[in-house]
Protein backbone atom coordinates (compact mmCIF):
# COMPACT_ATOMS: atom_id res chain seq x y z
CA UNK A 1 0.00 0.00 0.00
CA UNK A 2 1.58 3.24 -1.15
CA UNK A 3 -0.18 5.94 0.79
CA UNK A 4 -0.04 9.68 0.41
CA UNK A 5 -1.37 11.96 3.15
CA UNK A 6 -2.35 15.52 2.25
CA UNK A 7 -0.86 17.70 4.99
CA UNK A 8 -2.71 20.97 5.26
CA UNK A 9 -1.10 23.90 6.98
CA UNK A 10 -2.21 27.21 8.39
CA UNK A 11 0.45 29.77 9.19
CA UNK A 12 3.55 27.81 10.17
CA UNK A 13 1.77 24.78 11.54
CA UNK A 14 0.44 21.59 10.03
CA UNK A 15 -3.18 21.09 10.99
CA UNK A 16 -3.85 18.62 13.74
CA UNK A 17 -6.48 16.88 11.62
CA UNK A 18 -3.90 16.20 8.91
CA UNK A 19 -1.37 14.96 11.45
CA UNK A 20 -3.96 12.60 12.97
CA UNK A 21 -4.57 11.06 9.54
CA UNK A 22 -0.81 10.79 9.01
CA UNK A 23 -0.31 8.97 12.30
CA UNK A 24 -3.19 6.65 11.41
CA UNK A 25 -1.66 5.85 8.02
CA UNK A 26 1.77 5.26 9.54
CA UNK A 27 0.29 2.67 11.90
CA UNK A 28 -0.84 0.30 9.13
CA UNK A 29 1.20 -2.90 8.98
CA UNK A 30 2.34 -2.59 5.38
CA UNK A 31 2.51 1.18 5.48
CA UNK A 32 4.54 2.87 2.79
CA UNK A 33 3.58 6.37 3.78
CA UNK A 34 4.52 9.74 2.44
CA UNK A 35 3.14 13.16 3.26
CA UNK A 36 2.73 16.03 0.86
CA UNK A 37 2.86 19.70 1.71
CA UNK A 38 1.71 22.19 -0.91
CA UNK A 39 2.22 25.91 -0.51
CA UNK A 40 4.78 28.68 -0.56
CA UNK A 41 7.80 28.60 1.75
CA UNK A 42 6.61 25.40 3.37
CA UNK A 43 9.80 23.33 3.47
CA UNK A 44 10.24 24.07 7.16
CA UNK A 45 7.14 21.96 7.88
CA UNK A 46 9.16 18.82 7.15
CA UNK A 47 10.29 18.50 10.77
CA UNK A 48 6.71 18.34 11.99
CA UNK A 49 5.73 15.87 9.27
CA UNK A 50 8.60 13.57 10.17
CA UNK A 51 7.83 13.72 13.86
CA UNK A 52 4.25 12.57 13.30
CA UNK A 53 5.04 9.60 11.11
CA UNK A 54 6.04 10.61 7.57
CA UNK A 55 9.37 9.01 6.61
CA UNK A 56 9.04 10.79 3.30
CA UNK A 57 7.65 14.21 2.47
CA UNK A 58 6.91 15.56 -0.96
CA UNK A 59 7.11 19.32 -1.03
CA UNK A 60 5.51 21.46 -3.71
CA UNK A 61 6.84 24.90 -2.96
CA UNK A 62 5.82 27.65 -5.32
CA UNK A 63 4.67 31.24 -4.95
CA UNK A 64 1.58 30.37 -7.03
CA UNK A 65 0.55 27.91 -4.31
CA UNK A 66 0.52 30.41 -1.49
CA UNK A 67 -3.25 31.02 -1.33
CA UNK A 68 -5.21 28.09 0.13
CA UNK A 69 -7.19 27.40 -3.07
CA UNK A 70 -8.06 23.87 -4.09
CA UNK A 71 -7.54 23.62 -7.82
CA UNK A 72 -3.75 24.16 -8.06
CA UNK A 73 -3.43 21.52 -5.34
CA UNK A 74 -5.39 19.06 -7.47
CA UNK A 75 -2.88 19.62 -10.28
CA UNK A 76 0.07 18.89 -7.99
CA UNK A 77 -1.52 15.81 -6.41
CA UNK A 78 -2.70 14.30 -9.70
CA UNK A 79 0.82 14.55 -11.07
CA UNK A 80 2.31 13.07 -7.92
CA UNK A 81 -0.12 10.14 -7.76
CA UNK A 82 0.63 9.26 -11.38
CA UNK A 83 4.40 9.69 -11.15
CA UNK A 84 4.88 7.81 -7.91
CA UNK A 85 2.31 5.04 -8.41
CA UNK A 86 0.44 6.01 -5.26
CA UNK A 87 -2.60 3.83 -4.59
CA UNK A 88 -4.21 5.59 -1.61
CA UNK A 89 -4.61 9.30 -0.88
CA UNK A 90 -5.88 10.38 2.54
CA UNK A 91 -7.29 13.74 3.67
CA UNK A 92 -8.46 15.13 7.01
CA UNK A 93 -11.62 17.13 6.38
CA UNK A 94 -11.63 20.89 5.98
CA UNK A 95 -13.20 23.35 3.55
CA UNK A 96 -10.01 23.20 1.48
CA UNK A 97 -9.33 19.47 1.77
CA UNK A 98 -12.86 18.45 0.70
CA UNK A 99 -12.57 20.49 -2.49
CA UNK A 100 -9.10 19.13 -3.22
CA UNK A 101 -10.17 15.52 -2.61
CA UNK A 102 -13.24 15.79 -4.85
CA UNK A 103 -11.35 17.57 -7.63
CA UNK A 104 -8.69 14.87 -7.49
CA UNK A 105 -11.33 12.13 -7.63
CA UNK A 106 -12.73 13.60 -10.84
CA UNK A 107 -9.29 14.19 -12.37
CA UNK A 108 -8.13 10.61 -11.74
CA UNK A 109 -11.56 8.92 -11.99
CA UNK A 110 -10.79 7.63 -8.53
CA UNK A 111 -13.30 6.64 -5.87
CA UNK A 112 -13.76 9.07 -2.99
CA UNK A 113 -15.33 8.00 0.29
CA UNK A 114 -16.03 10.93 2.58
CA UNK A 115 -16.92 11.60 6.19
CA UNK A 116 -15.10 8.45 7.31
CA UNK A 117 -14.67 7.93 11.03
CA UNK A 118 -12.15 5.10 10.60
CA UNK A 119 -10.22 3.01 8.11
CA UNK A 120 -9.36 -0.65 8.67
CA UNK A 121 -7.82 -3.55 6.79
CA UNK A 122 -10.29 -6.44 6.54
CA UNK A 123 -9.60 -9.60 4.52
CA UNK A 124 -6.90 -7.84 2.58
CA UNK A 125 -9.20 -4.96 1.69
CA UNK A 126 -9.29 -1.40 2.90
CA UNK A 127 -12.64 -0.67 4.50
CA UNK A 128 -13.85 2.78 5.50
CA UNK A 129 -16.33 3.27 8.35
CA UNK A 130 -18.83 5.91 7.42
CA UNK A 131 -21.49 7.09 9.87
CA UNK A 132 -24.72 7.82 8.00
CA UNK A 133 -28.34 8.88 8.61
CA UNK A 134 -27.54 11.06 11.60
CA UNK A 135 -24.94 8.51 12.71
CA UNK A 136 -27.67 5.92 13.32
CA UNK A 137 -25.85 3.46 11.10
CA UNK A 138 -22.20 2.81 10.23
CA UNK A 139 -21.70 1.90 6.59
CA UNK A 140 -18.70 -0.20 5.53
CA UNK A 141 -17.47 1.32 2.31
CA UNK A 142 -14.66 0.46 -0.04
CA UNK A 143 -13.03 1.11 -3.37
CA UNK A 144 -13.37 -0.87 -6.59
CA UNK A 145 -10.13 0.38 -8.06
CA UNK A 146 -6.99 2.36 -7.35
CA UNK A 147 -6.18 5.02 -6.54
CA UNK A 148 -8.48 5.22 -3.56
CA UNK A 149 -9.27 8.57 -1.96
CA UNK A 150 -10.56 8.99 1.58
CA UNK A 151 -11.69 12.09 3.45
CA UNK A 152 -11.88 11.71 7.23
CA UNK A 153 -14.20 13.39 9.67
CA UNK A 154 -12.49 15.99 11.90
CA UNK A 155 -11.03 14.59 15.09
CA UNK A 156 -11.15 10.94 13.99
CA UNK A 157 -7.54 10.26 14.89
CA UNK A 158 -5.07 11.61 17.42
CA UNK A 159 -1.71 12.74 16.10
CA UNK A 160 1.04 10.55 17.54
CA UNK A 161 4.43 12.20 17.85
CA UNK A 162 6.50 9.06 17.30
CA UNK A 163 9.64 11.00 16.46
CA UNK A 164 11.59 10.53 13.28
CA UNK A 165 12.44 12.72 10.38
CA UNK A 166 11.15 13.06 6.85
CA UNK A 167 13.27 12.73 3.79
CA UNK A 168 12.22 15.66 1.62
CA UNK A 169 11.67 15.38 -2.12
CA UNK A 170 10.76 18.45 -4.12
CA UNK A 171 8.10 17.99 -6.74
CA UNK A 172 7.76 19.97 -9.93
CA UNK A 173 4.73 22.23 -10.12
CA UNK A 174 2.83 22.42 -13.41
CA UNK A 175 -0.53 24.12 -13.16
CA UNK A 176 -3.52 24.11 -15.50
CA UNK A 177 -4.83 27.45 -16.73
CA UNK A 178 -8.30 26.92 -15.29
CA UNK A 179 -6.81 25.93 -11.94
CA UNK A 180 -5.21 29.31 -11.52
CA UNK A 181 -8.06 31.46 -12.83
CA UNK A 182 -9.63 31.92 -9.38
CA UNK A 183 -7.53 34.25 -7.29
CA UNK A 184 -7.41 35.17 -3.62
CA UNK A 185 -7.84 38.91 -3.22
CA UNK A 186 -8.18 39.14 0.54
CA UNK A 187 -7.98 36.99 3.63
CA UNK A 188 -9.51 38.13 6.90
CA UNK A 189 -8.63 35.64 9.55
CA UNK A 190 -10.34 35.67 12.87
CA UNK A 191 -7.39 35.43 15.19
CA UNK A 192 -8.69 33.53 18.13
CA UNK A 193 -6.82 32.38 21.18
CA UNK A 194 -6.40 28.67 21.70
CA UNK A 195 -7.24 25.80 19.40
CA UNK A 196 -9.94 25.84 16.68
CA UNK A 197 -12.93 23.55 17.13
CA UNK A 198 -11.54 21.09 14.57
CA UNK A 199 -8.31 20.70 16.50
CA UNK A 200 -9.43 20.95 20.11
CA UNK A 201 -9.52 17.92 22.40
CA UNK A 202 -12.22 19.71 24.41
CA UNK A 203 -15.08 21.85 23.13
CA UNK A 204 -17.31 23.91 25.38
CA UNK A 205 -20.29 25.06 23.33
CA UNK A 206 -23.00 27.59 24.04
CA UNK A 207 -26.57 27.89 22.81
CA UNK A 208 -29.65 30.04 23.22
CA UNK A 209 -29.96 29.00 26.84
CA UNK A 210 -27.07 31.33 27.69
CA UNK A 211 -29.57 34.15 27.35
CA UNK A 212 -27.38 36.63 25.49
CA UNK A 213 -24.03 37.13 23.78
CA UNK A 214 -22.45 38.62 26.92
CA UNK A 215 -22.83 35.28 28.68
CA UNK A 216 -20.49 33.60 26.23
CA UNK A 217 -17.72 34.69 28.61
CA UNK A 218 -18.92 31.88 30.91
CA UNK A 219 -18.32 29.40 28.11
CA UNK A 220 -15.00 30.99 27.17
CA UNK A 221 -13.74 30.82 30.74
CA UNK A 222 -14.60 27.15 31.09
CA UNK A 223 -13.04 26.37 27.70
CA UNK A 224 -9.88 28.17 28.76
CA UNK A 225 -9.72 26.32 32.07
CA UNK A 226 -10.04 23.00 30.24
CA UNK A 227 -7.64 23.94 27.45
CA UNK A 228 -10.42 23.67 24.91
CA UNK A 229 -12.14 25.64 22.18
CA UNK A 230 -15.46 27.46 22.17
CA UNK A 231 -18.26 26.20 19.93
CA UNK A 232 -21.67 27.69 19.18
CA UNK A 233 -24.99 26.50 17.86
CA UNK A 234 -26.44 27.67 14.63
CA UNK A 235 -29.15 29.61 16.44
CA UNK A 236 -26.70 31.81 18.30
CA UNK A 237 -24.48 32.27 15.26
CA UNK A 238 -27.53 33.34 13.25
CA UNK A 239 -28.43 35.72 16.06
CA UNK A 240 -24.95 37.25 15.78
CA UNK A 241 -23.85 36.26 19.28
CA UNK A 242 -20.79 34.40 18.12
CA UNK A 243 -18.71 34.03 14.92
CA UNK A 244 -19.70 31.57 12.21
CA UNK A 245 -16.31 29.85 12.35
CA UNK A 246 -17.26 28.39 15.73
CA UNK A 247 -20.55 26.90 14.55
CA UNK A 248 -20.93 23.19 15.15
CA UNK A 249 -23.14 21.45 12.63
CA UNK A 250 -22.39 23.31 9.43
CA UNK A 251 -20.83 21.54 6.44
CA UNK A 252 -17.68 19.79 7.39
CA UNK A 253 -17.98 20.95 10.96
CA UNK A 254 -18.54 17.54 12.38
CA UNK A 255 -16.42 17.61 15.47
CA UNK A 256 -15.20 14.67 17.51
CA UNK A 257 -13.38 16.03 20.56
CA UNK A 258 -12.67 13.80 23.54
CA UNK A 259 -14.99 15.95 25.63
CA UNK A 260 -17.93 18.09 24.54
CA UNK A 261 -19.71 20.26 27.09
CA UNK A 262 -23.01 21.67 25.84
CA UNK A 263 -24.18 24.74 27.77
CA UNK A 264 -27.75 25.86 27.25
CA UNK A 265 -28.06 23.83 24.06
CA UNK A 266 -31.33 22.05 23.36
CA UNK A 267 -29.83 19.59 20.86
CA UNK A 268 -31.54 20.26 17.53
CA UNK A 269 -30.87 17.64 14.90
CA UNK A 270 -28.33 19.72 12.98
CA UNK A 271 -26.33 20.28 16.11
CA UNK A 272 -26.59 16.64 17.09
CA UNK A 273 -25.18 15.52 13.76
CA UNK A 274 -22.28 17.90 14.21
CA UNK A 275 -21.14 16.67 17.60
CA UNK A 276 -22.56 13.29 18.54
CA UNK A 277 -19.39 11.41 17.67
CA UNK A 278 -17.60 13.23 20.49
CA UNK A 279 -15.98 10.95 23.05
CA UNK A 280 -17.81 12.11 26.16
CA UNK A 281 -20.76 14.50 26.09
CA UNK A 282 -21.84 16.55 29.09
CA UNK A 283 -24.96 18.70 28.78
CA UNK A 284 -26.21 21.44 31.06
CA UNK A 285 -29.71 22.69 30.36
CA UNK A 286 -32.56 23.90 32.52
CA UNK A 287 -35.18 22.13 30.40
CA UNK A 288 -35.37 18.54 31.60
CA UNK A 289 -36.98 17.54 28.28
CA UNK A 290 -34.21 18.97 26.09
CA UNK A 291 -33.31 16.44 23.37
CA UNK A 292 -29.61 16.87 24.13
CA UNK A 293 -30.03 14.71 27.24
CA UNK A 294 -30.90 11.75 25.01
CA UNK A 295 -27.36 11.59 23.68
CA UNK A 296 -25.37 12.92 26.62
CA UNK A 297 -23.21 10.77 28.86
CA UNK A 298 -23.91 13.11 31.74
CA UNK A 299 -26.91 15.41 31.73
CA UNK A 300 -27.36 18.16 34.29
CA UNK A 301 -30.74 19.76 34.66
CA UNK A 302 -29.75 23.16 35.96
CA UNK A 303 -29.03 26.80 35.27
CA UNK A 304 -25.96 27.32 33.08
CA UNK A 305 -25.36 30.70 34.70
CA UNK A 306 -24.74 28.96 38.01
CA UNK A 307 -23.31 25.58 37.07
CA UNK A 308 -20.82 26.73 34.43
CA UNK A 309 -18.92 29.35 36.47
CA UNK A 310 -18.80 27.02 39.47
CA UNK A 311 -17.41 24.25 37.30
CA UNK A 312 -14.81 26.66 35.92
CA UNK A 313 -13.67 27.47 39.45
CA UNK A 314 -13.47 23.80 40.38
CA UNK A 315 -11.46 22.95 37.26
CA UNK A 316 -9.08 25.84 37.94
CA UNK A 317 -8.67 24.79 41.57
CA UNK A 318 -7.95 21.21 40.55
CA UNK A 319 -5.37 22.27 37.98
CA UNK A 320 -3.72 24.61 40.46
CA UNK A 321 -3.40 21.93 43.13
Amino acid sequence: MSTLVFLEHHGHELLKGSLGVLSKAAAFADADVAGVVIGSKVRALADQAGKFGAPKLYVADDARLEAPLPQPRVDVLAQLVRDKGIDTVLFGNSVLAADVAAGLAARLDAGLNWDLADLVQQDGKLVGKRPALQDSVYVDVGWKSEPRIALFRSGSFDPVAAGGSAQVEDVAVALEDFSTSARMVDQAHEESEGPSIEDAPVIVAGGRGLGGPENFTLVEELAKALGGAVGATRAVVDAGWYPYSTQVGQTGKTVSPKLYIACGISGAIQHKVGMQSSGVIVAINKDTNAPIFEFSDLGVVGDVHEVVPRLTELVRARKAS
Binding site: A105, D109, A110, G111, L112, N113, V127, K129, P131, D135, S136, V137, Y138, V139, D140, V141, G142, W143, K144, S145, I284, T288, F293, E294, F295, S296, D297, L298, G299, V300, V301, G302, D303, E306, V307, R310, L311, E313, L314
Partner: peptide, 28 residues
Protein backbone atom coordinates in the same frame (compact mmCIF):
# COMPACT_ATOMS: atom_id res chain seq x y z
CA UNK B 1 -18.68 4.06 -9.84
CA UNK B 2 -15.34 3.55 -8.13
CA UNK B 3 -16.63 3.11 -4.60
CA UNK B 4 -18.82 0.39 -3.16
CA UNK B 5 -20.77 -0.46 -0.03
CA UNK B 6 -19.95 -3.70 1.77
CA UNK B 7 -22.43 -3.67 4.61
CA UNK B 8 -24.24 -1.85 7.36
CA UNK B 9 -23.40 -1.96 11.04
CA UNK B 10 -24.72 -0.51 14.26
CA UNK B 11 -22.88 2.56 15.46
CA UNK B 12 -20.48 2.10 18.38
CA UNK B 13 -22.57 1.96 21.54
CA UNK B 14 -22.57 4.99 23.84
CA UNK B 15 -22.11 4.31 27.48
CA UNK B 16 -25.23 4.56 29.58
CA UNK B 17 -26.45 8.08 30.08
CA UNK B 18 -26.74 9.64 33.54
CA UNK B 19 -28.99 12.58 34.33
CA UNK B 20 -28.92 14.62 37.52
CA UNK B 21 -30.76 17.64 38.85
CA UNK B 22 -28.70 20.56 40.09
CA UNK B 23 -29.24 20.99 43.79
CA UNK B 24 -26.11 23.03 44.23
CA UNK B 25 -23.69 20.12 43.72
CA UNK B 26 -23.93 19.68 39.96
CA UNK B 27 -20.61 21.39 39.21
CA UNK B 28 -18.84 19.05 41.62
Amino acid sequence: SRTEVYGLNDPPARSESKKIEDNGNAAQ
